[in-house]
């Protein structure tokens, strides 16, 4: 075999590639031994061995999908890799990391999840734009910059939030002094008088772990699929029985309140 001295720091072959571990901070290697992994479309960059990638939602994989994939409307963004060999996953040169869940639950921003073992069940979170993984197994997630783990109680910037485990209480928090009254409204609307851009946070309390990325660059959102249009389902757009004071106008995501309320009228 030819050798190429100095042809880059490390040369990998199937024997030296790690099994279900990071190759470097940006590339993750998954070993398949007749097993299966769910992965987001287009995140495989290379593989050794023989593998097939199948879109889910048809015949052969029906049993697998029934037990571990619970977002039927989201199915076209995911594929199942099966076969044997080693496969490299990466996503737009973002940091990737694997996490082990042991009979646990973790909720993650939909664009950050790259791949997961079928022993985990994927479900849509009640919080729009987030997915929840439940069970035991490994999953791979991407983030812009390394992930830091924080203990609640904590308030975090919405753009830096990657996900959370075991915390049952994600909620919005508004900096009260900034957001109420006439001056607060003016500040928030115009930026005059110094809007810090940090008036709104997500708040977590209780036992658990919060995952943050070390930048405020958001990953491209992955559609999580529509939720049933029932009253009481967040994000479903169904009327909730009584129409509120501003019923009718569509609400922008992150929109706080209407002008009248902001100015205390």
């Amino acid at each position: 075999m030819t050798t190429y001295p100095g042809a880059g720091p490390v040369i990998h072959d199937p024997a030296t590639l790690p099994s279900d571990d990071n190759v470097n901070a940006y590339t993750f290697c998954v070993e398949l031994k007749g097993s299966e992994w769910f992965l987001q479309k287009g995140k495989m960059i290379a593989y050794y061995g023989s593998m097939t990638f199948e879109g889910i939602g048809h015949g052969r994989l029906d049993r697998l999908v029934r037990t571990s994939f619970h977002s039927p409307l989201h199915a076209s963004d995911w594929v199942v890799a099966s076969g044997s060999g080693k496969m490299l996953l990466a996503d737009r040169a973002f940091d990737v990391n694997s996490y082990d869940l042991d009979d646990g639950n973790l909720t993650i921003r939909s664009g950050n999840l790259l791949a997961f073992q079928p022993s985990l069940a994927l479900k849509q979170s009640i919080v729009p734009g987030f997915l929840t993984l439940i069970g035991t197994g490994k999953f791979v997630a991407a983030s812009n910059g390394p992930v830091v783990f924080m203990e609640p109680p904590i308030r975090v910037d919405p753009q830096a939030l990657v996900g959370w485990a075991d915390c049952p209480s994600p909620c919005h928090h508004y900096d009260h002094g900034y957001m109420t009254g006439l001056m607060g409204g003016l500040r928030a609307m115009t930026g005059i008088g110094g809007a810090s851009g940090e008036e709104h946070q997500f708040e977590f309390v209780g036992a658990g772990t919060v995952l943050l990325q070390s930048s405020e660059t958001l990953m491209e959102e992955q559609a999580t699929g529509a939720v049933p249009g029932e009253p009481g389902v967040p994000g479903s757009g169904a009327t909730t029985g009584h129409s509120g004071p501003q019923g009718g106008t569509p609400r922008l995501p992150g929109q706080l309140g209407d002008l009248q309320r902001r100015f205390g009228l």
Binding site: H12, D13, T27, Y47, L88, A90
Partner: peptide, 18 residues
């Protein structure tokens, strides 16, 4: 775009790349 991974191709280990 991101550090390259160098993969060896040999007779017994062909490689498939995106």
């Amino acid at each position: 775009d991101g550090p390259a991974v160098v993969l060896r191709v040999s007779a017994q280990f062909p490689l498939v790349v995106d």
